[in-house]
Design a protein around this nucleic acid. Sequence first.
DNA 1: ACATGTGAACTGCTTCACAGCG
DNA 2: CGCTGTGAAGCAGTTCACATGT
Lengths: 208, 208
Amino acid sequence: MKRIAESTVRRLSIYLGFLEEIGAEGVLTTSSDDLARLGGTTSAQVRKDLSFFGSFGKRGLGYSVPELSSHLREILGLARKWHICIVGAGNIGCALARYAGFAERGFMITGIYDSDPDRIGGRVGRVLVRDSASLEADIAAGEHDIVVLTVPPENAQDIVDRIVGAGIKAILSFAATQLAVPADVELRTVNMAMELEALTFALTNRDR
Amino acid sequence: MKRIAESTVRRLSIYLGFLEEIGAEGVLTTSSDDLARLGGTTSAQVRKDLSFFGSFGKRGLGYSVPELSSHLREILGLARKWHICIVGAGNIGCALARYAGFAERGFMITGIYDSDPDRIGGRVGRVLVRDSASLEADIAAGEHDIVVLTVPPENAQDIVDRIVGAGIKAILSFAATQLAVPADVELRTVNMAMELEALTFALTNRDR
DNA sequence: ACATGTGAACTGCTTCACAGCG
DNA sequence: CGCTGTGAAGCAGTTCACATGT
């Protein structure tokens, strides 16, 4: 199979969001045109995105909402449950642990780790705070599929090296620093400063 | 001036991060090669990115760290202070209000808004919780340059319409829903589910 | 008649390679 | 000589337009 562009995957997520929304409202059929309008793209783009994975529509008619939802869930890897743990029980780590949105999409928070003895053993929402020292062992035991990293930038690379060594294959980092991982580890970084700077750049340079 | 690609802006942010880091360590000179290695790109890409805005280097020598930092800050619009407010004093809103990383890059949090009477008048870190009802007036008065949106998805579009009406021109949304804004309003969306799905997609489809 | 699926055209980002200049 | 700055080439993602199937 051809390599899929990151932008395509992002759009598939958006399409799935809409399908679940309108599906919950009882809508049974939709079109590439609808999906495009709601997702801020074009109908040709929608059809091209889907065509990488198969032919899910009926010509002259459109797409079945439940069918296409289910195909997209399959494609995005959401057919199974994923266990995610949060490393770093600071402001953002705790906020994410309490955030309900994960479960809705099938992600289970299986732990939050910290090195502060005052926090270890406590709970954040329903999630137990565990000792960072046991992180590698828990990962090696297969307890977590994905690590969400919410530690200070100066500790981030150290944690990454440890969890990669323990066998983790997917990391979502909120640490404001560039991280190095082997090629077989998937890393995504959300950087607040970068997002704000994209805005200030646009505001500053809008009329050139 | 030619339109600048979003990917270019993202990289400029990354370059600036490194320049400030190595600048703090006292490094005075760097090269496109260094920046490329640290930022995970190529030296040609670095030079091309910078060349959109001018010639900041010395042939045969490289770039002056303080000079290039200052140029990048200018380009990204960081020469001035920006006032940002957070709308939604829930888990994520409060975590962001307490997050120190903003100030480091020159962003000032000038308020956090909520509609819950129990929260209004309280403080999150140093930031006063204000009544959402005064949001439009405060924006119209020019108190805030950028709104960071951390409200439940079902309220998000309503808030957006209100603040856009009040004259806001830049929004960073953490709401898990697609938002509509006029063309002259800059909108960026950070969507946790989308990030995780990019990871699960990669994990699921890695060896095709 | 209508909306999908898809090769072909197009646009734009990235990489290459080298001229230019300290 | 070394590293920048930059046209030109290459490649990837998007848009177009129409054949195809219902």
